[in-house]
């Protein structure tokens, strides 16, 4: 019996590994094949003639480079702003009592559950009134709505586990509370802040619906929308689409693999508490 279960587990693990990785490997290999081999039946499994022609095409013959720049600006600034706001908010929630505190925290979690479609139309009209459609600030502001609730929540959880004595000592030594936050609390919570920062970056980097709805020019449009337009184009160039897909995945997969442990522990612990 034990042997059967062991063997079945082994087969199942293999299945999951293949299921997860095969579409990704196929994406990478298609991006590296010359056009002639991409459209061959049966498919070419070995990479006999490696080529970077699709990457060159995507980078230099399309607007994709500009879209990458836009994505970096938008995701980077979203991360910075959400960390600043979430550290303050998380600290406030972890350390103070005030009227309606529980209502506020419920409201923050609740906002995470709202269907995005409910926000689509009113935000579109709001941004259009403020002339923020098709601008970086408009998109960044929208993304804060995605990132702030969870980052605040995760950081609150982490800060609550830091002993108060740490700040009290700093404040006895003459720091104001805010200085104590900056000089004592933030340095000891860097790993957690960093992990939530990565989360914000990943969320903003791959967001689709609002980027699609709120941008329409080359100067603001982000990579995911660029790829979607690629697919929609007449005469689909699959090699180029796969190359662009690999490029949009690389930064986030890279961040994930390097900070795997930190990211997982912050995320799971934070979710379990919530």
């Amino acid at each position: 019996m034990k042997k059967i279960i062991g063997f079945a587990s082994f087969i199942l693990i293999l299945f999951f590994i293949f299921f997860s990785i095969l579409p990704i490997l196929w994406m990478i290999s298609s991006s590296l094949k010359p056009a002639g081999e991409i459209y061959s039946m049966p498919p070419q499994f070995g990479l006999t003639a490696l080529t970077f022609e699709h990457y060159k095409y995507v980078l230099f013959d399309t607007h994709m480079l500009r879209y990458f720049w836009n994505s970096i600006i938008v995701a980077g600034l979203t991360t910075l702003f959400s960390l600043g706001i979430a550290v303050l908010g998380g600290y406030g929630f972890a350390r103070f009592k005030f009227k309606g505190k529980s209502i506020f925290s419920v409201a923050i979690l609740f906002s995470q559950m709202l269907p995005l479609a409910v926000l689509l139309v009113p935000l579109y009209m709001l941004l259009s009134r403020m002339n923020l459609l098709d601008t970086y600030p408009g998109l960044i502001l929208t993304y804060l709505m995605f990132t702030i609730p969870l980052t605040t929540w995760l950081i609150r959880g982490f800060l609550a586990s830091i002993p108060r004595e740490l700040e009290e000592v700093a404040m006895v030594d003459g720091c104001t509370r805010f200085q104590a936050l900056l000089r004592v609390v933030i340095p000891v919570s860097t790993p957690a802040i960093f992990a939530t920062g990565i989360y914000s970056f990943i969320v903003a980097w791959q967001e689709f619906l609002f980027a699609l709805s709120f941008t329409n020019s080359k100067s603001v449009r982000t990579v995911p929308i660029g790829i979607a337009n690629f697919i929609g184009q007449y005469g689909v160039n699959w090699g180029a689409i796969m190359a662009a897909s690999v490029m949009v995945s690389l930064p986030v997969v890279f961040l994930f693999i390097i900070f795997f442990k930190q990211f997982i522990s912050t995320f799971t612990e934070g979710m379990m508490k919530g």
């Binding site: 579409p23 791959q206 994930f256």
Partner: peptide
């Protein structure tokens, strides 16, 4: 890590591939 990868790959890249 391998099994987690699909969760990290951006939605649009997953859709395309």
């Amino acid at each position: 890590t391998i099994i987690m990868l699909p969760w990290i790959v951006p939605g649009i890249a997953a859709a395309a591939s």
